[in-house]
């Protein structure tokens, strides 16, 4: 009896949120799945049920496969680099004897408060082939033969974009790690140094294990962030060029939905991307699972 009353009360408490959640999240998301089974222009007229045809076509669509590959590349490379860097920066700032700590913290965090569009424009000028600082610096150092059209070559464009994503997100995760490091008891480090552990061993044996739960969360955040931010950055910087070499799944979806008036197909892309990122998140969750005792 007690229990029943209790769950009734809980249900009552979560009701408003549940209703709003269903209207604004569950309903639209389920519509994405539903619409992906149709061939439609997104205007209500002429909707034809095609079953899984959109999905079957997807996996023979070269542009889509390229865009999925590119998205996968960014999802793999960007989190690894930016989280590693964030960890290193955070530990240096937290344990190092730097006087300008506060300045560095601000500088590293700065990109996170800039709008993504601004970042895209900024970096497209940094990479500018004729007046960008990257090529100018190379020329200045006498490395003229290494100057390149960074965003115009198939071989460099994705790395160039990955670098922007790393630059954008490192500071954000660094601040999260800094907060986590503040919570690690100082005694652990004292004890370790008495036992003769150097700072590298302290980092790997104390800091990382103590931060493990935060790291797990940031991995998921980072994978998701890449998915979303890459859309803006690619749209602003390369529009998917050269010849789709930097197309990511979401820019391709947008193109299909809004430039090609091919809504059903775009929804099929959305479904695949959705499943793709869920699976990635699950895998990373499983791989990083540890017993904390």
């Amino acid at each position: 009896m007690e229990k029943k009353q209790r769950s009734g009360f809980i249900l009552f408490c979560i009701m408003p949120t549940l209703v709003i959640f269903s209207i604004f999240v569950v309903y639209p998301v389920s519509m994405v799945f539903y619409k992906s089974l149709f061939q439609s222009s997104g205007f209500g007229g002429n909707e034809i049920f095609v079953g899984f045809e959109n999905f079957i076509y997807l996996f023979s669509d070269k542009t889509f496969l390229i865009s999925l590959k590119n998205t996968g590349f960014l999802m793999l490379v960007v989190p690894v680099i930016s989280l590693t860097l964030a960890l290193i920066f955070a530990s240096v700032l937290s344990f190092g004897q730097l006087r300008e700590k506060a300045v560095y913290r601000t500088i590293f965090f700065f990109p996170s408060i800039l709008s993504f569009v601004v970042i895209g424009i900024l970096w497209s000028f940094i990479y500018h082939p004729n007046m960008g600082i990257v090529n100018d610096l190379l020329t200045f150092m006498g490395l003229e033969e290494f100057t390149m059209t960074w965003l115009g070559e198939r071989s460099t464009v994705l790395w160039a974009i990955a670098l922007v994503l790393v630059w954008q997100s490192t500071g954000y995760y660094m601040v999260m790690y800094l907060a986590g490091m503040d919570g690690v008891p100082k005694e652990l480090y004292e004890a370790a140094s008495i036992d003769g552990a150097n700072s590298f061993v302290q980092f790997t044996k104390i800091t990382i294990p103590m931060l493990w739960e935060i790291i797990r969360v940031t991995i998921i955040f980072s994978i998701n962030g890449v998915l979303n931010i890459s859309f803006v950055i690619v749209t602003v910087m390369t529009a998917g060029g050269p010849n789709n070499a930097s197309e990511v799944a979401l820019t391709y979806m947008y193109e299909q939905a809004f430039n090609n008036a091919n809504f059903g197909y775009a929804m099929a892309i959305a479904v695949v991307v959705f499943s793709f990122s869920i699976i990635l998140a699950l895998i990373s969750n499983r791989l990083t699972e540890r017993d904390i005792q």
């Binding site: 061939q39 034809i48 542009t63 115009g152 198939r154 060029g241 193109e255």
Partner: peptide, 23 residues
């Protein structure tokens, strides 16, 4: 026509980058 999942115009001009790069 309905049901075509490619946009011929963008395919046409997307290739220009490869042509201009000599690929």
């Amino acid at each position: 026509p309905e049901g075509v999942n490619i946009e011929p115009r963008s395919i046409l001009f997307d290739q220009v980058a490869d042509v201009m790069n000599g690929d």
